[in-house]
Design a protein around this nucleic acid. Sequence first.
DNA 1: AAGTTGGGTGAAAGCACTTTCAGTTTAACA
DNA 2: TGTTAAACTGAAAGTGCTTTCACCCAACTT
Lengths: 336, 336
Amino acid sequence: MTSAKKTPTIYDVAKLSGVSITTISRVLNSPDKVNPKTRQQVMDAIDQLGFVPKAEARARAMRYTNRIGVITPFFTAPSFVQRLRGVAATLSKASYELVIYPVDSAEHLQGYISSIPVMRNLDGLIIMSLAIDEKDAQRLVDNAMHTVLIEYSNSLLNSIVINDAHGGRLAAEHLIGKGHKSFGFIGDIEPPERYAIHPVRSRLQGFKEALNEAGIDLSKKYIKQAYYSQENSREAALELLNMSKRPTAIFAASDIQAISIMKVARQLNLRIPEDLAVIGFDDIDMAEYVDLTTIRQHLDDSGRLSAEMVLARINDPGRILQNIHLPLTLIERQTA
Amino acid sequence: MTSAKKTPTIYDVAKLSGVSITTISRVLNSPDKVNPKTRQQVMDAIDQLGFVPKAEARARAMRYTNRIGVITPFFTAPSFVQRLRGVAATLSKASYELVIYPVDSAEHLQGYISSIPVMRNLDGLIIMSLAIDEKDAQRLVDNAMHTVLIEYSNSLLNSIVINDAHGGRLAAEHLIGKGHKSFGFIGDIEPPERYAIHPVRSRLQGFKEALNEAGIDLSKKYIKQAYYSQENSREAALELLNMSKRPTAIFAASDIQAISIMKVARQLNLRIPEDLAVIGFDDIDMAEYVDLTTIRQHLDDSGRLSAEMVLARINDPGRILQNIHLPLTLIERQTA
DNA sequence: AAGTTGGGTGAAAGCACTTTCAGTTTAACA
DNA sequence: TGTTAAACTGAAAGTGCTTTCACCCAACTT
């Protein structure tokens, strides 16, 4: 029965299904652009012939991969997920695939960064919250890999950043405005990861500065280092809240940590915001669920924007470099 | 100043070394057929340009992609993220890339599913919470695409499932054990998406059955349909809690919805669990932060397992099919 | 009824090479 | 020195696929 003497090509499939080779290609590469009925005919023919597109021919003819990559640490932390959501939304519209490169060590990062531009199986790249050095940046531009950085910047590449110190100020000012006099801070000031960038110190600094300007000194013992984990944040919160003169307001460098603090406060029977005000940073989805007052950093938008920027660059490589500063917004809810 | 705009081709090499592209090709493919002097010139040019036959590299890269794909709806909903986290963790260890195909329409899904196995730019595939029909399953196995289904099963493919009805029972039994007599249910019983699978009905059914067995009838008006959004869940909760004889315990078909209910209860000044018990389903990270009692479905583990299964299959294609039932565990915290 | 969209489609022009074939050197031999 | 086979080379014709562009036709506008 098996007639085929040679492996079938799209020309064979085209003949059998009665359409042009163009349509076959389209069924395979952008199925949504072809009429479902036609698509079904083509798929039937493909199945019948056992057609498999030849990788080399494909590679030859394909100038783009229709795929953009995201290199990110902590890719499942809520704030990163929300950025990814923004990225995915715009990529999906433009029918690009999303490849995620989770980074959990410096080697990992270096590996990705050195092989990606050479392998060229990506049309563009988004790098989140990761510091990349001059040499790597240079390699990226040499190999014409369109990339945008988030939370980090480099003169050779597009970037999207926020002003973390200003975020700290916003928090301080809001709390001061509410009449608070004694403050605490909890955040991941000295994270263990060498490869990721660390905006927390800036948030703290802005917070301190604004307090100073209001004549308030935030002494060391009210500043608690806590890793991004729940237990760790909880311990820090406990220490703060068990102090003889405990603060009436706490600024947490991330919403997740703020929520941990709320949990401890609840267990200690402290009312929020009457006994303790809590303010977070990020405005992750969950913040609204728990009515957390926080500094919104427009996570979805940053993702969306970054994707739009790489797409724009792909379509117009001559486009000028951009370094976008995203605003921060205080979102007042119930906790402060 | 920008030097290399694109990767060099044999044309560039030909120009630089002053011979025709034919000769370049020959140097590369049958060096013995070309004059040593000419060959040397060509090699020099090749070195100088850093030329790598592109198609070849691509084709090589494509025969074994080191990449596995995940097709998933709602890819940024917490429960899906947690599964993805499991997947990413094991893939990262095995140094595989993760490609995410977000599905937001039936066409999308059908498109992916028909082109992926044929195009072979993936070594394996994980399909989450999506129903796939016999024909597609058949095509996947015909094309030797190693795939694992999560929350759905098919006799031709590996799968990982949970017993949703049993989860409903667990919730009911726990609540009954706490002495509750009047119950409510909130969940996405009739979701709008045709392409995704819908375990909520089963959860409700198990819940109802267990109540029935305890002699309790869950009447229709205590069963509220609510989409997976915050506002919708809130409305449903409000209706339930404003009833003349309001339930003392509510089972939410997802943690996210349970948390919405908690928010409403807070606004209504209802104490949890004294005035109202709430139990969720999933055990997402956030559940612990807000002390939500819930039915844990081991999300990270299901992701990890699914990745391990496709990896195992890639390394040993003869491996027997598995249909894994993951246990559900009641996690008792503060809300019920 | 005429005009405007816009989805679906095919012809044809790439893509980055390989191969064929005809031609040009070169080397070797008479 | 002329002849000829061998060695080398390039133009052009594939290779199997993707993509651009123009076209058709049906569905809306006005």
